[in-house]
C-alpha cells in the first residue's frame, strides 16, 4: 500500500499479527501458532531501528512481513513509497558458475536490474578482493572467498530500507574486520536500517531506537 508521506515516516506497521499453520490440512482441522500480534510502530527515514526479542519471538517473521514477502494475518503494513528488503548473502548462488555470473544473478534476484548490478561490478570485485577468481566457478572458491563475494554483492546492492537479521560479519579474520567496518558504516549512516537482534548490547551500540517484541 502506498500513501502520501507523513513527515519522516516511511513505513508504518499497524496492529500487525502473523500466525503459522502448525499442522492440519485437507482432512484435519488446522492448528495455528501465533508468531506475534498487535505489533505497531513507525520506521523513520534515516534511523537505525533495533528490534529485540528472545528466540522464537517472531523477529525474522516480522522482517519478512516488512519486506513484503508474506502478508500479515491481521493489521497492515503501510509504506510511504519506500522499498524494504532483507539483506541476504549468496542469494541464488550456483556453484558451477563463475563469480561474475553469480553476482549478477544474485543482484537481479534481490530486485535490481541487470544494468544496476553491472554498474556496481567493479566495486563488488574490488571489495571482495577476488580479482581473477571472479571468472572461476564458485565451487573452486574457499568458503571464505564465497562469503566475501556474497557479502560484497549485498553490500553494494542496498535498498531504501535495509532489513538486517543480526549484524553480519563473514569471511576470514582479515575480511571479517573489513566486513564489520563496512556494516557499521552502513548502520550509522543515513541509510534506514531495521536491525533484528537478540543482543541488547549490540542494539545499544548501534541503534537510535529500540523496540521489544
Amino acid at each position: 500500500m502506498t500513501q502520501k508521506s507523513q513527515g519522516n515516516v516511511i513505513i508504518s506497521l499497524r496492529d500487525v499479527g502473523v500466525r503459522y499453520k502448525r499442522r492440519g490440512g485437507l482432512f484435519q482441522k488446522p492448528e495455528y501458532f501465533q508468531a506475534f500480534e498487535g505489533v505497531s510502530f513507525d520506521i523513520h527515514r534515516g534511523e537505525t531501528l533495533g528490534i529485540l526479542g528472545r528466540n522464537g519471538a517472531g523477529k525474522s517473521t516480522l522482517l519478512k512481513v516488512i519486506a513484503g514477502i508474506i502478508k500479515p494475518d491481521s493489521g497492515q503494513v503501510v509504506d510511504y513509497g519506500a522499498v524494504a528488503s532483507l539483506l541476504t548473502l549468496q542469494a541464488g548462488f550456483d556453484a558451477e558458475l563463475p563469480g561474475t555470473d553469480n553476482a549478477i544473478l544474485s543482484g537481479m534476484l534481490m530486485g535490481y536490474t541487470r544494468r544496476q548490478v553491472e554498474e556496481r561490478m567493479a566495486d563488488i570485485i574490488e571489495f571482495s578482493e577476488l580479482g581473477d577468481f571472479m571468472d572461476e566457478p564458485v565451487k573452486t572458491y574457499s568458503s571464505g572467498m564465497k562469503a566475501r563475494l556474497g557479502f560484497a554483492v549485498s553490500m553494494y546492492m542496498t535498498p531504501d530500507v535495509l532489513l538486517l537479521d543480526e549484524v553480519l560479519s563473514v569471511g576470514d579474520k582479515q575480511f571479517k574486520k573489513k566486513a564489520e567496518t563496512a556494516m557499521m558504516k552502513k548502520l550509522s549512516s543515513d541509510q534506514t536500517v531495521l536491525l533484528v537482534t537478540h543482543s541488547e548490547s549490540q542494539a545499544e551500540r548501534v541503534c537510535d531506537r529500540k523496540i521489544f517484541l
Binding site: 528488503s85 530486485g111 535490481y112 556496481r120 542496498t158 535498498p159 535495509l162 567496518t181 558504516k185 543515513d190
Partner: peptide, 19 residues
C-alpha cells in the same frame, strides 16, 4: 572510519533505488 562517515562521497553506504 569516522571521517569517512561525515563525508558523503563514500560509495559503500549509498543506497540504490530498488524498483
Amino acid at each position: 572510519w569516522l571521517e569517512g562517515q561525515s563525508s558523503n562521497d563514500n560509495e559503500v553506504h549509498e543506497a540504490i533505488a530498488l524498483p
